[in-house]
């Protein structure tokens, strides 16, 4: 097990991503943040806090999306679902999907399917903490990337929150 992004570096990345988002989507009233269960929710919560701080209290709505029922491997493996919480309309909004690691692209494809069952957003953007671009299986790319990481196909990356509540990205080698 190896730490790829420690907590301090992770928070620096979050601050940078939050700045990027505020420049790219200045109208916070039509922008919503949606974290994908489970790692994406951790990242989107951190981003939300950073946005609250940097945008001087302007409210950005944020929710969480669970893709369990939309997985394309549901026939092979039944998983218990996580909480879905989108307490606002996404109709006509800019939705920023947030995930921890962009890998094959399957999760994002499922997340888009799930999202459109809630309404028709104006546009959807993707923001990820880490990108593993050489292993993509779908034509899906992120709009905002914290860090590009070179990995082996079998590597497992995991966002872990330690007992002190600090998030870090770990490499669990195959």
């Amino acid at each position: 097990m190896k730490t790829l992004i420690n907590n301090q570096a992770l928070l620096t990345i979050i601050d940078r991503l939050a700045d990027q988002l505020l420049i790219a989507y200045p109208d916070v009233s039509t922008t919503v943040l949606v974290g994908i269960q489970q790692g994406g929710v951790v990242v989107s919560n951190l981003l939300y806090q950073a946005l609250q701080k940097n945008s001087k209290g302007a409210i950005v709505e944020h929710g969480q999306l669970d893709i369990t029922f939309y997985r394309d491997d549901v026939r092979h493996k039944i998983l218990a679902p996580d909480t879905m919480h989108l307490p606002f309309a996404i109709e006509g909004k800019t939705v920023i999907l947030v995930d921890d690691v962009l890998f094959t692209g399957r999760t994002i494809k499922a997340a888009l399917d799930a999202l459109f069952d809630y309404g028709r957003p104006d546009r959807v953007k993707l923001c990820v903490l880490a990108d593993r671009p050489e292993h993509r299986q779908f034509p899906i790319q992120a709009d905002h990337i914290g860090q590009v990481i070179s990995t082996q196909r079998n590597d497992k990356l995991k966002l872990r929150v330690n007992e002190k509540g600090q998030a870090e990205l770990l490499l669990l080698s195959a």
């Binding site: 669970d66 029922f69 996580d82 909480t83 879905m84 069952d117 809630y118």
Partner: peptide
């Protein structure tokens, strides 16, 4: 979680 699904505009997964 399925009860939440049933409250959505598209009540289907």
């Amino acid at each position: 979680q399925f009860k939440e699904v049933l409250q959505r505009p598209v009540k289907k997964v």
